[in-house]
């Protein structure tokens, strides 16, 4: 049985999740090119995060505007077209910067907790 977290923790978790979602998208897209629905499934499977599915679209839109991901429509034989996303070189570079920042942050937390 899953223990229900207090409201405060749930809100905090939701904020952290929101803040990390762009990084998570870059991580997943660096592993494999995905279309929107597939990306959500990948995120949920790999991170166990539960998302309102639509939340990734504004983020993908912003990442694309910043040239961190690129997209292309692919026609499908028996279904409607899919819009596939992949990370750009700039996206890979930013992903590395985010990773380093999170590592620094973790080091600081470890020091604080001692």
């Amino acid at each position: 049985m899953k223990i229900q977290e207090p409201d405060f923790i749930l809100k905090w978790q939701s904020q952290v999740k929101k803040g990390l979602l762009e990084y998570i998208i870059l991580l997943v897209l660096d592993i494999k090119t995905c279309y929107g629905y597939e990306l959500i499934q990948e995120i949920e499977t790999r991170t166990h995060l539960e998302l309102a599915e639509g939340t990734i679209y504004p983020l993908l839109n912003r990442l694309k505007a910043e040239n961190l991901v690129k997209s292309k429509w692919v026609e499908m034989d028996r279904s409607i077209p899919r819009k596939y996303y992949e990370v750009t070189l700039k996206g890979k570079e930013y992903k590395k910067k985010m990773k380093n920042y999170l590592a620094d942050l973790q080091t600081s937390f470890n020091k604080l907790e001692k």
């Binding site: 279309y35 929107g36 629905y37 597939e38 499934q41 599915e53 639509g54 679209y57 429509w73 279904s79 409607i80 077209p81 899919r82 819009k83």
Partner: peptide, 14 residues
């Protein structure tokens, strides 16, 4: 519109 329709289509199929 195309992207959200594609999402709904994939979601329905799964």
């Amino acid at each position: 519109q195309k992207e959200l329709s594609s999402h709904i289509y994939e979601s329905m199929n799964s």
